[in-house]
C-alpha cells in the first residue's frame, strides 16, 4: 500500500515537472518513514492525525500571508495603521543626540531561540542605523553569548552600511551577566552612572521589567518598551512613555523597513485575525445554544 509521502510525491510530479529541490529534500525525509501512512489507518501511523486541525490552520495562515505578500509584490497599496511606539524610536534617538547622551537598548532576557529576541535583534538593527547616522553612543547589554554574537553582527552591519566603521566599537554590544537579577543590577547601575537619554526595552522580560523601567524613569530617560508577555505589559505601561503590545513587537521590523513584501505579512496576519474573530463569534453562538460540543472539539489539539 502506498504511503502518504509517496502519494504526495506522485501528485506533485503530475502537477509540475519542476519540483523545487527543497520540496524533494522534504519528500526524502517523508519517504524515509518506516511506518505506512494511509487515510483509513489512523492508529499507529507515523502522521499524527489528531493534529490535522493544527495543520489546516498552519496551511490557511501561511496561504494568507503568502497571498498578501504576493499582492504587495505586485504593487497593491497596503494600509498599515500608525504605531506611535515605533515612530517614537527615531524621536528618542534624536533626543539623545541633542543631549549628547547615549541610547540604551536591551533585547530582552531570553536566548536567541526565542522569537521575541529575534524580533528585538531586528529592531536593534534599525536603531543602530539611526545611532550610526547621528553618531549617537549606543549601549546594548545582553544576557546570553549567542545574543551577543547576533547583536554585534547586526550593529556592525548597520555601521558599515552607513560608512561609519570608525564609530563602531565591539563593546557597544556587551555581555553583562547570565543571572537574571545580576543582569538587572548591572544594567540599573549603568543607567544611573551613564544616564542614557533614551532606554529601549524590546523582547522577553520577566520580573525585572519593572526594576529596569522604574530605574530608567528615575534617571529621566525617555522610555520605549515592547514585549509579547501580557503579565509584564502593565509594568511597562506604568513606567514607560510608549509600549508596544504583543503583536506590535513583531510588526516593528516590517513597519520600520516600510518594505511592501514585509508589510504583506502583516496584512495576512490581520486577515487571519478577522477569521479568528468570526470563529469565536460562531463558537459563542453555538455554545450559548448548547450545541457547540462538536465545534469545540474541532479546535482541540492533542
Amino acid at each position: 500500500m502506498m504511503n502518504l509521502a509517496e502519494s504526495l510525491s506522485i501528485a506533485l510530479k503530475k502537477k509540475s515537472k519542476k519540483i523545487p529541490v527543497l520540496i524533494n529534500v522534504l519528500l526524502f525525509f517523508l519517504l524515509s518513514f518506516p511506518g505506512s501512512v494511509t487515510a483509513d489507518d489512523t492508529t499507529g501511523s507515523a502522521f499524527r492525525y489528531e493534529r490535522l486541525n493544527a495543520l489546516v490552520i498552519v496551511v490557511v495562515f501561511s496561504a494568507a500571508v503568502l497571498l498578501y505578500t504576493r499582492w504587495a509584490r505586485q504593487g497593491r497599496p497596503l494600509f498599515v495603521r500608525k504605531i506611535p511606539g515605533i515612530d517614537a524610536v527615531e524621536e528618542a534617538v534624536g533626543r539623545a543626540t541633542e543631549m549628547g547622551k547615549a541610547v540604551l537598548f536591551i533585547p530582552g532576557l531570553q536566548e536567541l531561540d526565542d522569537i521575541e529576541t529575534i524580533a528585538a535583534i531586528s529592531i536593534l538593527g534599525r536603531v543602530a542605523r539611526i545611532t550610526a547616522q547621528y553618531e549617537t553612543p549606543l549601549l546594548v547589554p545582553v544576557r546570553y553569548p549567542l545574543v551577543l554574537a547576533a547583536g554585534q553582527e547586526v550593529v556592525e552591519q548597520a555601521y558599515n552600511e552607513l560608512g561609519k566603521q570608525d564609530a563602531y566599537n565591539k563593546d557597544i554590544v556587551r555581555y553583562v551577566a547570565g543571572e537574571q537579577m545580576a543582569f538587572t543590577s548591572a544594567v540599573n547601575g549603568l543607567m544611573m552612572r551613564e544616564r542614557p537619554a533614551a532606554n529601549i526595552f524590546m523582547g522577553a522580560f520577566f520580573a525585572e521589567s519593572l526594576l529596569l523601567a522604574e530605574t530608567g524613569n528615575a534617571a529621566g530617560a525617555i522610555q520605549i518598551a515592547g514585549t509579547a508577555r501580557p503579565e509584564q505589559l502593565p509594568f511597562f505601561i506604568a513606567a514607560c512613555d510608549y509600549t508596544l503590545m504583543g503583536e506590535e513587537l513583531y510588526a516593528a521590523s516590517s513597519y520600520l523597513s516600510k518594505e511592501p513584501l514585509m508589510l504583506g505579512g502583516l496584512k495576512g496576519q490581520d486577515f487571519i485575525k478577522i477569521i479568528i474573530v468570526l470563529l469565536i463569534l460562531v463558537g459563542v453562538i453555538l455554545v450559548s445554544l448548547d450545541i457547540g460540543d462538536w465545534y469545540y472539539k474541532l479546535f482541540e489539539m492533542a
Binding site: 500571508v65 504583543g246 510588526a251 502583516l266 496576519q269 485575525k273
Partner: peptide, 9 residues
C-alpha cells in the same frame, strides 16, 4: 495577537 505575530514573523 502575539501568537499570530510570532507565527507571521
Amino acid at each position: 495577537g502575539a501568537a499570530l505575530g510570532a507565527a507571521s514573523m
